[in-house]
Design a protein around this nucleic acid. Sequence first.
DNA 1: CTGTTAGCGCGTTCAA
DNA 2: TTGAACGCGCTAACAG
Lengths: 342, 342
Amino acid sequence: MRKEQVTITDLARELNVSPSTISRALNNSPFISEERKKVILDLAKKMNYSPNQLALSLLNKRTKILGVVVPEITSYYFSTAINGIQDKVGSSGYKLMISQSNESFEEEIRLMEAMALVRVDGFLISPSSNTVNFDHFEKIKGSGFPLVIFDRDCLGFEADKVVVDDYSGAFQAVEYLIQTGCKRIAHITGSANLSTARHRKNGYLDALIKNNYPVLDELIVIGDDSSSESGVACMQKLLDLDQMPDAVFCYNDAIAIGAMSIIREKGVQIPEQISLVGFDDEPYSSYFKPSLTSVWQPIYDLGLLSAKILLDNLDFDKESAEFRFEVLKPELVIRESSRKIS
Amino acid sequence: MRKEQVTITDLARELNVSPSTISRALNNSPFISEERKKVILDLAKKMNYSPNQLALSLLNKRTKILGVVVPEITSYYFSTAINGIQDKVGSSGYKLMISQSNESFEEEIRLMEAMALVRVDGFLISPSSNTVNFDHFEKIKGSGFPLVIFDRDCLGFEADKVVVDDYSGAFQAVEYLIQTGCKRIAHITGSANLSTARHRKNGYLDALIKNNYPVLDELIVIGDDSSSESGVACMQKLLDLDQMPDAVFCYNDAIAIGAMSIIREKGVQIPEQISLVGFDDEPYSSYFKPSLTSVWQPIYDLGLLSAKILLDNLDFDKESAEFRFEVLKPELVIRESSRKIS
DNA sequence: CTGTTAGCGCGTTCAA
DNA sequence: TTGAACGCGCTAACAG
C-alpha cells in the first residue's frame, strides 16, 4: 500500500506550531529562533520528511524538468548527446524527461504535447526524419516554452539551434579521397529529409566540383534507412555497375560497415580497390578490419552546448532576442579503409 | 517572456459560470447540459486551454511519470532496454524520467532521491556496478514506491526482478567451445560486483567442470572495465602466456572485439588457433571479420517485461504479495569466430 | 520571531 | 443541473 508522505502540516501538528514556522525552519529563513529551528529540523529528519516538488512546482510554475525528444535512443549518436545534456543540467538540479520519436512525425507531436502538459521547463529536440512541418514547434514556442533544436536543423523554423558542420566534414572527407588518387567516388546518402544528409551530400558534391570531378548520378545511391543492412544493399548496387567506384563516402558508419562487409564478400580489396569512409566515428569503427576512416563529430559537446543554451534561456526570459545558431566542427579521422596520400 | 497558461478559472470568468461547471464540461460529467458543455468545449479549444498536470498530480497523488536509472545510457544494451520500457508504458500515458548513474553508487542514490521528490509513480532500476549496499532501495521501497530491478540482480534485496539467465548463456557458449574441440578455454570476466559477471563466470566454470576440464587461474583474467580497450589489455596477457589459450569466452562483445583486434595484430588466426565468443550480440557483431559468435540477450523484452510488472504493481497496491523473479533465456549465436563442430 | 490568510490549478464534496 | 467551499502541500504577504 502506498505510504502517505509526511507533510509540513504533520510536523506542525506534532510540534504545535504553524506550518509556516516549519516552512521557515526548513528553508532556513532568518526569521526563526535557532532552538526552534533545530528542533524542527531534527523532527523532520526523524520523521523522514521530504518536500513535495509537485506542490512547489505548482507554486513556482517551474518543474525543473527538461523535455528531450530524439529520433532514437538506441543509437550511439543520440545517446551520447543525451549524455552531454545530462552532464550539463544534472548539477543544476534539472531532471530529464526523455522520449524517442522513432522517426515518427506524429509520435514527435504526441510526445511534445505530453511533456508540455507536465509543464517541463524547456525542450531539447532533435526532429524526426519525417517531420515535415514545424507547426508543433511553433505552438510550443508560442506557449512560451524555451526550445533548442539540436543536430538536425529545420529550415524555416526560427529557434536556438546547435548543429554539426556536416558540409565541412563531408567536404574534408571527399577531398581527402581525391588527394589519395581516387577517381570514381561514390556516395551512399541518407534520407533527403534529413538536414544532415543534405549537407553531407552537398559537401560531397562541392568537393567533386571544386576538383573538376564529374558528378555522376549512378554513383549516388540512397537506401531505405541509415542501417548497415541498407549499406549492404546500396553497396551491392555500386558493385554491380559496369565500372565499380574506387571510393565510397557513406552517410554514416553503420552504412559503411554494411558496405565493408559486402565489398569483402565479393573479394574486392579495401582500400586498394575501394576506399571507404564513414561518418560519426562510432566506438567500434576503429576495431573493424580494416579500421574505418570516418568523420568524428563532437556529439557529446553538442549535447552539452544545447543544454547550456537552454539553461541560459531559462534564467532570464528573453523577449525576442536573436536566436543562437551554433555550428560545431567535425574532424576527419584517417584509418586503414582509405588509401594514404602518395 | 513566459506566457501565462489558460486555467479553468479563466474560462469560467469568460463565460460567467463557476469553475466547477467548466471542470464538469471538460471531464464530461453527466451533470451538465449538452449545450453548455458544447459552448465550454469550444471556448476551451479556442483559448487553447490545456489542463495542468501538476495540479492534477498534486490532487491525485500520481504523476504518471516513471523513474528509470541505468548505469549508462550510451550502451546499446541499456538503450535497447529503455526502448522496450518506453514501448510498454507509452501507450498507458506514462512518461519516463531517465538518468544514468555512470556506474556510481553515490550518483545512483542522488538520482533516485531526486526522482522520489518529483513523486514518480515507480522505479525501474539497473544498479551500478559499484552499488555495494541497498539501503537506498530499501528506503525507496519503504516509502511505498513500487520498484523493479532489471538486468543486474542485487542479492539480499527483495523486490520484483527481471534478469537474463547469464549462467545458462555462458554455459551454452563454453560447452559449445568444448564440443568444437577447444582444450584451453580462457575467460575474460567483468567486475566481480556485477551479478551478470559472476553468473557468466560460474557458467564458464561449471561447463569446464562438467566436462572434466581443469580450471586454470591463469586462463581467467579480469579487466579494469568492460570496454574494448580493456579487452585488448586482457587478451594481451593471455597471448603472453607460455601456452596460449585456444579459445576465449568474453564477458561481452566489446571486450571480444578488443580481443579480436589484438589477436589479429599478432598474426594469430581466428578461429583456427583461437576461438572467440562474446556476449550481448550487439548489432555490429555480425559485421566484424570474422563475424563474432556471441550470446544474444532478449534485452528489449527485458525492458518490456520489467515495465509490465511495474505497471501491474501500480494498478492495485499489493500489500505484501510475493515478489516476482523473471528469468529470460539468452541464445548462443554461432558465427565465424568460433570453430564448427567437427 | 510567529501565526493567520491566501492562492498556485484542479476535482470533489455539499447545498441549492 | 449548478455554484460555493474545501483541500492536495507549500510559500509569501500580512499582521501581530
